Simulated assay, not measured.
Amino acid sequence: MKIVNQSYRKKDAMQLVTGQPVYTDDLVPNDCLLVKVLRSPHANAIVESINTAIAAKVPDIEAIYTWEDVDQDGERCTYAGQTYPEPSPYDRLLLDRHVRFVGDIVAIVAGKTEKAVDKALSLIKVKYQLLDAVLDFRTALDNPVLVHPEDTWKAHCPVGADNKRNLCAHEVIEDGEVDKILAECDVVIDQTTHTKAVQQDMMEPFVTYCSIDTYGRLNILSSTQIVFHCRRIIANALHIPKTMVRVVKPRIGGGFGAKQSCVSEMYPAFVTWKTKKPSKMIFSRYECHIASSPRHEMEVRVRLGATKEGKIRAIDLYTLSNTGAYGEHGPTTVGLSGHKSIPLYRTEAFRFGFDVVYTNLQAAG
């Protein structure tokens, strides 16, 4: 009982109340490379050609990487911070010739100054083959336009995913005779609710610093909620052994789930692994909004049957969820609409079905 009911000062209490540097960028040295990315202006396109020759000649530019630096037939990965094997499909390449939403990555630029990097970004010339886009998640399922037509797409868990149907996940579970009981109910309520995608907008943006240690390992300091998952994700994205990656997190300035996916880590990690030089990436507030990991947009239809006295007898719930261009957490977050709500009621029967669909919009998380 020396500890129970006693007050103990947190180890970082004085740092926090006195405003001492404790966040990621406060711990980053000044002489590292600055990493930024060129983003697609198109919702669905193939990069036909990309010319980086002039941009590479800008003074203080260290390196520029494009899809040509990544094996396009290599194994894909997911950026979702989930226990292995991840329910989310493996549908990502670190740099993909096929860009799938406005804001998708086209090129990585690393340089010694922000001015040089910004100038180089403006000098990269890209020619796109524009494709039709799926922008309404209500029309995504079995749409002739496929967000992920590639054969290297893979689902490691049986979540009902099918990239040839724009389907990230599908399931129907039920118990009891739902339709029969609903027909017998005195009152049946049938309502559809639409929840928009919502960005968490935490105080600290996505920040990552990378370096190579004495043993040749990739060391990553990042504002992340998923240290150990981040290690696996980065190793998969770079196609290197997990033993060569170490991830550390300082105190983070908010996450709220947005930092439960790898958002900024892969790009400076790739630069540092290639150049063996320290690098960092800081998302602008604009990038945090247009290319991170917002809440999934959902449309939920609920049919609820009850007696005149108000006793709920049956619930029939169907959720359509928009995972965007990539499937991060798509198969799991949808369960919050049914798996976590239906058990709150003692019913005679229930049904919960869902479809999580791909669209050419920012990936959710």
Rank of each mutant, 00 (worst) to 15 (best):
N51Q: 12
N219V: 14
L27M: 10
E309Y: 13
G176Y: 12
K112V: 08
G103E: 05
V106K: 09
D151A: 15
V356L: 00
E297H: 09
V207L: 09
A45I: 07
D12M: 14
K274D: 01
F101I: 07
T359E: 02
S7W: 14
E150L: 06
R351L: 10
I64W: 07
R39H: 04
L361V: 05
S264E: 04
K115S: 15
S88V: 00
D91A: 01
E309A: 15
D162Q: 09
A56V: 02
T139Y: 11
S293P: 00
E177L: 11
H156N: 13
V172A: 06
V117L: 10
I212A: 09
Y318D: 11
A43H: 07
T195A: 14
V22Q: 15
L33N: 10
T333R: 00
G74L: 04
L336P: 02
D31E: 07
L336C: 06
R303M: 05
T152V: 11
D175I: 08
R76K: 10
A133P: 04
E328M: 01
R346K: 15
D175Y: 15
I189M: 12
R246N: 14
Q82G: 07
I61F: 13
D136C: 05
R285A: 03
K10R: 15
S264W: 02
V198D: 12
V271P: 04
T152D: 00
I220F: 11
N51E: 13
F101L: 05
E48H: 11
Q191L: 15
C77E: 04
K280A: 07
P343V: 02
I240Y: 03
K57S: 15
D26M: 03
R251A: 13
R231T: 01
V106R: 03
T272F: 09
P241E: 03
Q191N: 14
D162R: 08
I181W: 04
A55Y: 05
K242E: 15
Q20T: 12
L38G: 06
V70W: 11
V271Y: 12
I312D: 05
Q6K: 15
V227D: 06
R92E: 00
F350N: 10
I342C: 07
Q225D: 01
D151Y: 10
A237K: 03
V159T: 02
D136L: 04
G330M: 00
E184F: 06
P149R: 09
V106F: 08
E265R: 00
E62T: 12
K311A: 10
T193S: 13
V198C: 12
L218F: 02
K57G: 07
M202F: 14
S279W: 03
I212Q: 09
G305E: 05
C262A: 12
D316A: 09
D179F: 08
A363T: 06
L344P: 01
C262E: 11
D73T: 12
A55E: 11
F354N: 01
